[in-house]
Each structure stands twice: as structure tokens, then as C-alpha cells.
């Protein structure tokens, strides 16, 4: 195909779901050494997309590539939409180092969400491992701030080291606004006076009613499996536990095939799933 002979038209109206909308980086906040939160506003037009906590966007760093990133702010919150990115590869590095004022591409939002409007009278136990707090952050802020909620919110966070605890300001804010917040680290340093151990060790330390509890869990798959086991041991019903899964997502709309997990396309059927024996089997199935 001869590129020069190809007629090009400006994107208006947007035709192809693979074409992003341009957003400007209006603020950049370093969370930890390799985790950055970008605040994005549309370069033109009235308002950004609407979304629900737990959904993700495909972010483009122009000339580098596109990657799936969770929306980390709460829906309806004033100000720009936030995405929290960990610097683990070429594209995320480019996003993490994006200067304020630069332009990125956004497609989305995609996928299922945590369903935060469905359990106003229930206690919500949120368990996050590492950067797994990012896709939960919007849900926690939303639940803590939601008027009329009668259930309590528990936030249990596990980090490898104290330096890697993300969103420390939010953790304090959520606690101030009524949530029970507990943090543990695998490897303490000389300044750490908190809990030590994997995040599941926090479960027995909170006082909640398992019969009227919904649990939202995000982190490495092994952490999620053991967290689910811990929750079930304490009496939480399997069907009341939701997890967010990660696979390579390149389109967000079920075309590209990269995010398959057995019968599931994570971008289309997830990333948030009700936990079940079938899901446990899928994520426990041995790859080599």
C-alpha cells in the first residue's frame, strides 16, 4: 500500500475505536520511586469520558506505544482524571516521565468495574498488594465519600518495602474520613514501626461482619488467591469477593486476543470478576 498516495482525513468524527483522543498532562505526582500519577484533561472539548472505578484506559505515548492503565481517581471527583503508572517498560517509562504540558492519547474507558454502588449497607474490605492499590483508589475514595452509606470501609495494604507504599496521603485521608486503614510491609527498614508480613496477616486484625461484607482485591495473582482463602476462612462468601486480573491488553475491546485467560478475554469480560471456584481454577492452572 502506497502511504503517500493514501488520502488522509482529520479525525472528526472519530471513526475507529483504535484511535485515541488527545489529553494534556496537567499535573504529575511521583508516588514512589517508580510510580507516577498523571492528571489528564482533554486538549479540547467540554468534558472527559465518564467511568466507574475499576475500569481502565489505553494510554498512548506518541511514538512509543500504547498500554492499559487503570483510572486511579474517583468518578465525579472534581478536577482532572488521574492514572497511576508504574515504570516497568518502554511505554510506561515514557508515560512516567511525561512532562506537564505534554500530550498523551486516551482510549476508553474499558472493562468491568468494582460495582461500588451495589452495597451501601455492607462492610467493604479492600485488600491491595503493591501497585494493585491504583485500580482500587477511585473505589475507596468514592465509598469513603459516598453519602448515605452505612457499611464501614476497611483498607488493607501490603507493600514490599516502606518506600513502595503508594498513595500515603490518600491512606491518611481515608482514615481521617472514617475508613479503617492498615498497612504492612514484607521488608521493613530502620524507620518502619508498622506491621511486617504479607497482607493476609492483616485480615484477622480487623473487626468486620463477614456475613455482610463485600471484598475487593487487587494485587499479584498469588496474593489474591491467598487473600481469598483468608477471607473465606473468616466467613466471607466466595460470591462476595471481587478481584481484578491483569493480562497483556492491546486493544481493550476484544479484538486483539492478547489478554486471554482460558475462556475469558480479560479486557471484555473483566478486569473485575466475581471470584468463583472456576476463576480460581483458571488462575491456578499451571503454565510452564
Amino acid at each position: 500500500m502506497c502511504m503517500d498516495a493514501m488520502l488522509l482525513t482529520e479525525v472528526e468524527p472519530l471513526l475507529n475505536p483504535l484511535t485515541p483522543v488527545t489529553y494534556r498532562v496537567v499535573a504529575r505526582h511521583v508516588e514512589t520511586g517508580d510510580v507516577v500519577t498523571l492528571s489528564l484533561e482533554p486538549t479540547s472539548g467540554p468534558s472527559p469520558f465518564s467511568f466507574k472505578p475499576g475500569q481502565f484506559n489505553m494510554l498512548t505515548s506518541f511514538g512509543v506505544g500504547e498500554v492499559a492503565i487503570s483510572i486511579s481517581s474517583a468518578p465525579g471527583a472534581p478536577g482532572p482524571v488521574e492514572h497511576t503508572v508504574r515504570d516497568v517498560g518502554a511505554i510506561t517509562h515514557s508515560l512516567c516521565t511525561a512532562a506537564v504540558g505534554s500530550v498523551v492519547g486516551v482510549r476508553g474507558p474499558f472493562g468491568t468495574d468494582w460495582g461500588v454502588d451495589g452495597f451501601d449497607d455492607k462492610d467493604v474490605v479492600i485488600v491491595a498488594g503493591g501497585i494493585g492499590l491504583a485500580p482500587l483508589r477511585g473505589a475507596i475514595s468514592y465509598l469513603v465519600d459516598k453519602p448515605g452509606r452505612t457499611g464501614r470501609v476497611y483498607v488493607l495494604v501490603g507493600a514490599r518495602e516502606p518506600d513502595q507504599i503508594t498513595f500515603p496521603d490518600d491512606l491518611k485521608r481515608w482514615e481521617r474520613d472514617g475508613a479503617v486503614v492498615k498497612v504492612t510491609v514484607d521488608v521493613p527498614d530502620s524507620r518502619w514501626w508498622g506491621a511486617i508480613g504479607v497482607v493476609t496477616t492483616l485480615l484477622p486484625t480487623i473487626d468486620f461482619d463477614p456475613a455482610r461484607t463485600v471484598a475487593l482485591v487487587c494485587g499479584p495473582e498469588i496474593m489474591m488467591r491467598f487473600t481469598v482463602r483468608g477471607l473465606v476462612d473468616l466467613g466471607v462468601a466466595l460470591a462476595s469477593i471481587r478481584v481484578s486480573l491483569e493480562r497483556n491488553m492491546q486493544c481493550g475491546i476484544g479484538w486483539c486476543g492478547h489478554c486471554q485467560l482460558g475462556p475469558l478475554l480479560i479486557c471484555r469480560d473483566g478486569p473485575v470478576f466475581d471470584y468463583s471456584a472456576a476463576l480460581e481454577k483458571l488462575i491456578s492452572e499451571r503454565e510452564r
Binding site: 488522509l8 482525513t9 485515541p20 504540558g101 500530550v103
Partner: peptide, 20 residues
């Protein structure tokens, strides 16, 4: 293989074009 879009930037404005 197909072109999805082409982006050019000038004065901090990124312009996206899709092939017809």
C-alpha cells in the same frame, strides 16, 4: 498490516489523522 492513524505535532498540539 494496516495504518490505524498518523499523528503530527506542532506548537504542542497533536493532530491525529485516520486513513480514508
Amino acid at each position: 498490516r494496516s495504518l490505524v492513524w498518523r499523528a503530527s505535532s506542532a506548537d504542542e498540539v497533536v493532530t491525529l489523522e485516520q486513513p480514508q
